[in-house]
Design a protein around this nucleic acid. Structure first.
Lengths: 219, 219
DNA sequence: TTTGGATATATTGTCGACAATATTCACAGG
DNA sequence: CCTGTGAATATTGTCGACAATATATCCAAA
């Protein structure tokens, strides 16, 4: 995972606030009172305002003029729409990765997968979600497309994580997902753009269907 | 086109600043000095800072901590990457439009196209780019996917427009693009998601190739 | 002349106060 | 008891000032 280096206190505050939102420490739908947060994080209101603006840009909060901001409310419909965008963008990322990744990048991706294989066999299951994140992140970087990278890492992924954390579903369907990862890497390695995109899109779709069925079982 | 209703002065300032950046009144690569802009737009630096932050979120400016922000620099490579994202997102939008648009929405889209046909026959060529924007915008709205709509209208389209305006290429390849629009609407009307996505992706790709060839001819 | 460092300047980052708007509460009239 | 109106309160929007950082300038030493 990328180590975001926070330079200014505004950066640090934003990252802290985003963490609290994603983890649910600040609940979905909750009001973001500027004075309150200012006291909580021990920074001025200006910093809090900037952080809230960035939350809004990341689709994690919604602000109404002269009224205030709230953490976004999670819904099954929102999850579906999010995964539709993710399918589209990550599909393109896989296509571009097949086109643009250097051979040594692909080699690193392979070794990442094999280390995951060992972890799975050793039943170190707590590493699974991190592994999944790592894999997708590596492919997205492999696209060498700055817009794609920025959209996925700064927006989509945090929102995806907020859904997963708050709906209480960690690291699902490990073994099948792992096989899908292998097929994707194979397509990238073969420079088969068409197949890489198709496999990634299906992989994302399967993942969404898995979450949807879990949602149904919870009710 | 959506009438963005600016409530606060920060909103108005952001929209004005964004307009100046997209139109080239503030040149690509130019430094965004906060004090200067504060005087120019007659608002406090806080407002300017917020506007610059929003420009950055819209990928129209880049900020470095303690150094300042600059308007993004346009490059052929950047244009290509932008259109790759656009292809991906608008393709998905067309697919979802085929799935989700109401019958009366489709009817409105049809009548929009026929009015364009009349304008083209009447050689009202200055309406062409606006027409193209209208069409794409309508399809994106038809996806009924808030994330897609937000990403395209708040980010991608302004950047696309900046490229077009600053590279001096207005409303290209009208007649062929119009035929492509018709085919897309037909696919949406037939509820053929697969075809709608494919046609839109090709349409965007053709459009990019057209721009690229113009770029080559200019040098 | 060039280079290195210290000082001066310019620019961004952060803060607290005031203004404008929205919300809440009390009270009067029906 | 309900409803509407106006005052009181809370919250967001905007501003100018000060602090921290980066950049430019100048001078001295090689």
């Amino acid at each position: 995972m990328l180590a975001e280096q926070a330079i200014t206190t505004a950066d640090k505050t934003f990252i802290a606030l985003r963490g609290d939102v994603v983890s649910g420490a600040i609940a979905a739908g909750e009001k973001l009172n500027e004075a309150e947060l200012s006291a909580k994080y021990k920074v001025s209101r200006a910093i809090i305002r900037e952080s809230i603006n960035r939350l809004e840009a990341a689709n994690l909060a919604e602000r109404r003029a002269n009224v205030g901001a709230r953490v976004v409310t999670l819904s099954p419909e929102g999850l579906i729409q999010l995964y539709q965008v993710r399918e589209s963008l990550e599909g393109m990322a896989a296509r571009l990765a097949a086109k643009n990744m250097k051979n040594d990048e692909i080699e690193q991706l392979r070794s990442l997968l094999s280390s995951h294989a060992h972890q799975i066999m050793a039943k170190e299951s707590y590493y699974q979600e991190a592994g999944d994140v790592d894999f997708h992140y590596r492919v997205v970087l492999g696209s060498h497309n700055q817009h794609l990278i920025s959209m996925l890492t700064n927006n989509i992924y945090h929102l995806v994580r907020m859904y997963r954390v708050q709906l209480g579903m960690a690291g699902p369907r490990v073994s099948t997902a792992f096989a899908e990862h292998q097929h994707i890497v194979q397509a990238i390695s073969n420079r088969d753009e068409e197949l890489a995109e198709m496999l990634m899109r299906r992989h994302v779709t399967y993942s969404m269907n898995n979450i949807k069925s879990k949602l149904r079982n919870m009710q």
